[in-house]
């Protein structure tokens, strides 16, 4: 409930500043659709500091909660060797020593200037995934502040040249579940010819089958949610 409260505060600020709680339609071909002014930046930075302080308090509560630690430790284990064979991605992979993060190994502007710190664990259990998640919360909030402070002035988006010949492109970001890759092919008439969105869930779902055996039934939701996968992702 405490984390839900913090998340709702963040979503409401996003809705007020950018017009959408999840920033849908804020990115457009060639740039972004919405600008942010100095008071807006100050609000975002202020809220990120408050959330970070509260997360530290909640982490202290979590660290002292022996029964919760007991339930998380050695539950839903995926060993690093198996994780490498399955090609796990995102936070589930990083909790099993798969040190891959698109912002670190394949950075695009502005990530190459931000010196992103990758969080990893070797345990591969629910506990390790929770630890990676906590570390990433702090790093993400730092990144938000850094990006806001170094944001350049200038046009919001660049004009796009019309496409005259068939062409292809690949885009990627490190999403909350792992790397999201979208491949696009544009036909001669300037319309989309082929689009393939590649969701991290597609790669990570086999992990649930690996992580489950040997655990008690009551731990199924715990393990399942610790991977945080999308049902719809594999259908794409």
């Amino acid at each position: 409930m405490q984390f839900w409260r913090l998340k709702e505060d963040w979503l409401r600020l996003a809705a007020r500043l950018f017009g959408h709680r999840y920033l849908f339609d804020c990115m457009v071909p060639g740039g972004v659709a919405v600008d942010i002014d100095d008071p807006g930046k100050a609000e975002l930075i202020g809220l990120s500091h408050r959330i970070e302080t509260e997360i530290r308090q909640l982490k202290a509560i979590y660290d002292e909660h022996a029964t919760l630690q007991d339930r998380f430790a050695h539950t839903g284990v995926c060993q690093p060797e198996l994780a490498a064979q399955l090609g796990l991605t995102g936070l589930a992979g990083r909790a099993s020593a798969q040190a891959w993060d698109a912002r670190v190994q394949f950075p695009q502007e502005p990530y190459e200037q931000l010196n992103v710190s990758m969080a990893t664990q070797r345990g591969g259990d629910v506990l390790a995934r929770a630890e990676v998640r906590f570390s990433e919360l702090h790093e993400s909030l730092r990144l938000v502040r850094d990006i806001l402070l170094r944001m350049p002035a200038g046009a919001l988006h660049a004009p796009l040249a019309a496409v005259s010949a068939s062409c292809e492109g690949l885009g990627w970001v490190e999403g909350w579940r792992g790397e999201v890759i979208v491949a696009v092919r544009i036909g001669r008439d300037g319309r989309l010819d082929r689009v393939h969105p590649h969701d991290p869930s597609w790669r990570n779902w086999p992990l649930v089958g690996v992580g489950m055996p040997g655990n008690i039934v009551a731990d199924f939701p715990l393990i399942n949610k610790s991977f945080n996968l999308s049902y719809s992702g594999p259908d794409l």
């Binding site: 409930m1 839900w4 409260r5 998340k7 709702e8 979503l11 709680r21 999840y22 849908f24 999308s230 049902y231 719809s232 992702g233």
Partner: peptide, 13 residues
Amino acid sequence: NGCELEIHALNGP
């Protein structure tokens, strides 16, 4: 999962 995020949010305090 966009709608699911908001269903989750609705369960918040």
